[in-house]
Design a binder for these strands. Sequence first.
DNA 1: AGTGCAATTCAAATCGCTTTGAAACGGCTG
DNA 2: CAGCCGTTTCAAAGCGATTTGAATTGCACT
Lengths: 343, 343
Amino acid sequence: MNLKELATKLGLSPTTVSRALNGYPEVNEATRERVMAAAKRHNYRPNTRAIRLATGRAMAVGHVIPLATRHEIVNPIFADFIAGAGETYSRNGYDMILSVVPDEAEEQAYRDLKSRGSADGVILHAPRLEDPRIALLHEIGLPFVVHGRATGTTLPYNWVDVNNRRAFQRATEFLLDLGHTRIGLVNGLEFMDFAIRRRKGYTDALAARGIPLDPALMASDEMTEVSGYRAAVAMLAGPKPPTAFLVASMISGMGVRRAIEERGLRMGRDISVIIHDDDLSYMKNGGDVPIFTATRSSVREAGRIAAEMLLDIISTQPDTPQERLLEAELIIGQSTGPAPSRS
Amino acid sequence: MNLKELATKLGLSPTTVSRALNGYPEVNEATRERVMAAAKRHNYRPNTRAIRLATGRAMAVGHVIPLATRHEIVNPIFADFIAGAGETYSRNGYDMILSVVPDEAEEQAYRDLKSRGSADGVILHAPRLEDPRIALLHEIGLPFVVHGRATGTTLPYNWVDVNNRRAFQRATEFLLDLGHTRIGLVNGLEFMDFAIRRRKGYTDALAARGIPLDPALMASDEMTEVSGYRAAVAMLAGPKPPTAFLVASMISGMGVRRAIEERGLRMGRDISVIIHDDDLSYMKNGGDVPIFTATRSSVREAGRIAAEMLLDIISTQPDTPQERLLEAELIIGQSTGPAPSRS
DNA sequence: AGTGCAATTCAAATCGCTTTGAAACGGCTG
DNA sequence: CAGCCGTTTCAAAGCGATTTGAATTGCACT
């Protein structure tokens, strides 16, 4: 059932039917209702392909996922972000198109999205320091919103980000207040923007209290269970082991906990741990009482917000960059306690 | 730069240019090369929207993700599966379109995909017992491949699945061979097909050795860290605690390990654990020596295979259902050992 | 009755490609 | 040299919507 058929059945021209369905004002209310009813009765759905060609809009948003085989880019965060963004797209009649491409084909993927006209905008994931993709997207002329920020970039861009610096600063201060002075940082890869900011929050807090940094207490790696474990094992085996850890993710946190318990220590009593909790739907930080004390910020919510921002940008084309900084909560769980008194 | 412009520039008709680019035989080789060169030089990319309208194909595959807020459906498995499938799509010039919809809108989502013509086929995720979506897709007439199987369905359908029954049967036998007779099953939700099959593998193996089933040793819940933890805590606190666990996922396995260690026991020495490992890219089961003994099967690989199957079905429309059963490996890690001798 | 205007409706062009059916061109054959 | 055929090329008709510009209608007002 297409527009022409429907029009014939109604004894109207396609023009009028199209207008009636799309809510144009120049159509008689009685006619509109007749059309609406007929459309519903015959279960008419306009053909997306035709709409797209006629309007020149793709009614779709692209997400390009570089397939770094060696890294965790196809990461757990991503699934939840997508879920949040997807909700927004569905509600607004947009499609989400995902391009999974080899690392080196990422640039071409963006260009194709634009030149073949399959997306009206994109969300940029996992920004790095001075991320070149921002300049690329500017050049291509494809509207975009960055999930995160890219330190060192001079071009303006739209973004939605968590206040990572502040979150880790507060977490560090919280540990300091509990008497911990040797705090191990188990960070993500420090070419990622969020990791850079978290580190800054951590070092700022220590500096403010006049505590010198100890390189032996600062690790940076992928956020997997195993690397969390390794980092913690190494720090705990050092000459001056930490009494607390600040960890970049729930998953690395589990590795850290394994290292702690394997050493016969008890998390929350002997060693405190604070993680960053992205509030993933399948990776809840405990039930009533959280397992880990954590800085928490919902990635899914960020997805919703970023998607809304992008759709808004696509339709209204504002000329100032849109920015949205989300604050993380600091939630208290069972993994923190006062520093053990010196013996 | 569109087809018409390019044709004018070349002094040819759009017809010929189109044919030259699409490899039709009825065009002079010399002309074809001239066209190809010009296309590259002017960086011509055919407009996808126009191609789609003209050919009536969407050149896209849909994945519908019901947004069950209460469950872990947007699960970690999903991200990796998508990554695998996405690779295949990109390579073949297909788009992947993701629809994230509220649970109750799932049926409508499939119908829309078909009637608005935005996908040529779909992948069906997380099939359940007697899954009604299979009949739905048949009715709609949208080609599909199921990731998994749906026990109790009589209609034919295409699928790619892991031999879950066999995997858990082998794992159980392995534990039995080590002398364990009280084996706790920490399963996924048992309305999911894979969980049903895994349970069958477990019970079959026990039955074959004449070991009676103990309901107290069989749990079924979402595969989260917390529910793994709870199930294990409950079993370990029982009057006749298990000496081994068979666990549905890496994540629940971490919860089980937490329960074990919290009790002052050591995994691999006091209690053995086997998990099912989906070989997720961000959730590796250790490095050189796996942490967990596991039945392993790559979800990403399954994604690739399912996508290939679907594209093949779309283009060749075979009239017999396509089926592919993948075997899981049993890999030995540090989490299993002989059953402790009775005391 | 004639004019002007607002409210409706419609025919036709358009989006950028594919594809059908026909035309143009040469070369070969009888 | 006419006729036939294979090779190349082209004009034009879709695909199914939107949108422009024009036509129709009814009504109020002179």
